[in-house]
Design a protein around this nucleic acid. Structure first.
Length: 431
RNA sequence: GCCUGAGUAGCUCAAUGGUAGAGCAAAUGGCUGUUAACCAUUAGGUUCGGGGGUCGAAUCCCUGCUCAGGCGCCA
């Protein structure tokens, strides 16, 4: 019976058939071990000389990495086997054999540059497999949460006519006789969506042509951006918290094996429970200064400043109510303090940084026009966005969650470049 | 963009002014429970490019390129 490695435990002591790729093998004369990968997992196969035909046993001499083999054998539980299960092989056949060139990715350490240049092959490795499987589960959890909570998927365009915020670096491309820009956020379009569908989201790639060279930045990354009508800042934080906990709970439930492959401490993840910490920007600045780093009210947090704040907490922390001048034009003023806006960042623990940024949006027409002017942004670029405030405008809020930063945090990997199958970075667009 | 570090065999690294080496991978052989298996043998080099200086350079100097770690930039 053909089975997948993922479900091998259901077939204990039964004969199964598996096709897959040779991930690793060891031979000891009269016993051999082949680690087989079938796309759902990895399993050790034990070949014992007198348990199978001599011809088949001897054919393992021809094996090379990434050969494709067909195996029939009995599923056994064995503590010595990685993963706890192995297959005692009865029949063994090499279906495709490759020895024209040796396989570049080896079982020893490689440098990051080499591995990224071979990303198309590196994906076959165990840790990369585990990371991408968890990424897939996080994406599924995100979509399930949106579905279960009545959000409507409203895809924002990727080709856009202008810089939505007029700031930041955008990738420019020809668009017939004019120019187009790759989207750096779908938010403004979601704000159009909520007046038709009340709660919407988009989930797609976004692009930033910034020359950032850090472990938290990609030039192409995925972001989910929900937008909610009749929602204020406090409700927004509740939703963000509920959403993040939903994702983490799902990963703990369904991706334990892959978390273990990555060496992620699951007990630490289990501590990510409600409520998250909430702290105002003003209090965070005090915390930074008390922590020994000079910082003026009104400045944005640098890497060191952010670390001081996040290291105070063992769970994610919301920092809310930022100075108006360091935040974009669409954020609503705090009615109790016009110097600050109703924006909020969610900072993950252990240095993974900002994984969510959100705000209550300006919904008053005159205030929006005033903010645009103050930001030096031309009204004509925002005609449709301004229209939204002319008819049926209500208080609303939304946020954007960076997928790769979330994947990096939950898996415990050190850099967002391996949280996406084919990373795009300042000096890397191959393969 | 800035700071720091690195670039030597297919890969990961050693050799700091005097004959370029190891482990892994490859090839051959051995081994009945391996865990990145192990053991033996063989083969494997434009020391990132360009220039300089020295009796002599992987090593020192100048220059260019590439990469990494960090910072900055970044809603």
């Amino acid at each position: 019976m053909d089975v997948s490695i993922k479900k091998i435990a259901d077939h204990l002591e039964k004969e199964v058939s598996i096709k897959g790729w040779v991930d690793n093998f060891r031979s000891s004369g009269k016993i051999a071990f082949i680690i087989l990968r079938d796309g759902t997992g990895f399993i050790q196969n034990v070949l014992v000389k007198n348990e199978m035909s001599e011809e088949e046993f001897n054919s393992i001499k021809d094996l090379t990495y990434e050969d494709v083999i067909d195996i029939k054998g009995i599923v056994k539980e064995n503590k010595r086997a990685p993963g706890g299960y192995e297959i005692l092989v009865k029949q063994f056949k090499i279906i495709y054999h490759y020895d024209k060139e040796e396989y570049p990715i080896q079982k020893k350490d490689h440098g990051v540059d080499f591995l990224l240049n071979h990303r198309h092959l590196w994906l076959r490795s165990k840790k990369e497999f585990a990371t991408i499987m968890i990424r897939d589960e996080i994406i599924k959890a995100i979509r399930d949460y949106m579905y279960e909570n009545d959000y409507i998927l409203l895809d924002s365009p990727i080709l856009t006519p202008t810089a939505p915020e007029g700031t930041g670096s955008l990738f420019e491309t020809d668009y017939f006789d004019t120019k187009a820009y790759l989207s750096q956020s779908g938010q403004l379009y979601q704000e159009a969506g909520i007046f038709a569908f009340r709660k919407t989201y988009c989930f797609g790639p976004t692009f930033r042509a910034e020359k950032s060279k850090t472990k938290k930045h990609l030039t192409e990354f995925w972001m989910i951006e929900p937008e909610i009508a009749f929602c204020d800042l406090n409700e927004l934080m509740e939703i963000e918290e509920d959403f993040v906990i939903y994702i983490i709970t799902r990963i703990i439930e369904r991706q334990k094996n892959n978390l273990e492959i990555l060496g992620r401490n699951i007990e630490d993840l289990k501590k990510i429970t409600s409520p998250f910490y909430r702290i105002s920007y003003t209090d965070a600045v005090k915390m930074v200064n008390d922590g020994g780093l000079k910082m003026e009210w009104g400045e944005d947090f640098g890497a060191d400043e952010e670390a001081i704040v996040s290291n105070h907490f063992d769970k994610p922390v919301f920092i809310h109510r930022f100075p108006k001048k360091i935040k974009p034009f669409y954020m609503e003023d705090d009615p109790e303090d016009p110097k600050v806006v109703l924006g909020v960042d969610l900072i993950a623990p252990q240095g993974y940084g900002e994984i969510v940024g959100g705000s209550q949006r300006v919904h008053d027409l005159d205030k929006l026009l005033k903010n645009l002017k103050a930001a030096g942004l031309p009204e004509e670029n925002y005609k449709w966005y301004i229209d939204l405030r002319k008819w049926g405008s209500v208080p609303h809020s939304g946020f954007g969650l960076g997928l790769e930063r979330t994947v990096a945090w939950i898996t415990g990997i050190s850099h967002v470049r391996t949280a996406i199958p084919f990373p795009r970075m300042i000096n890397r667009i191959y393969p």
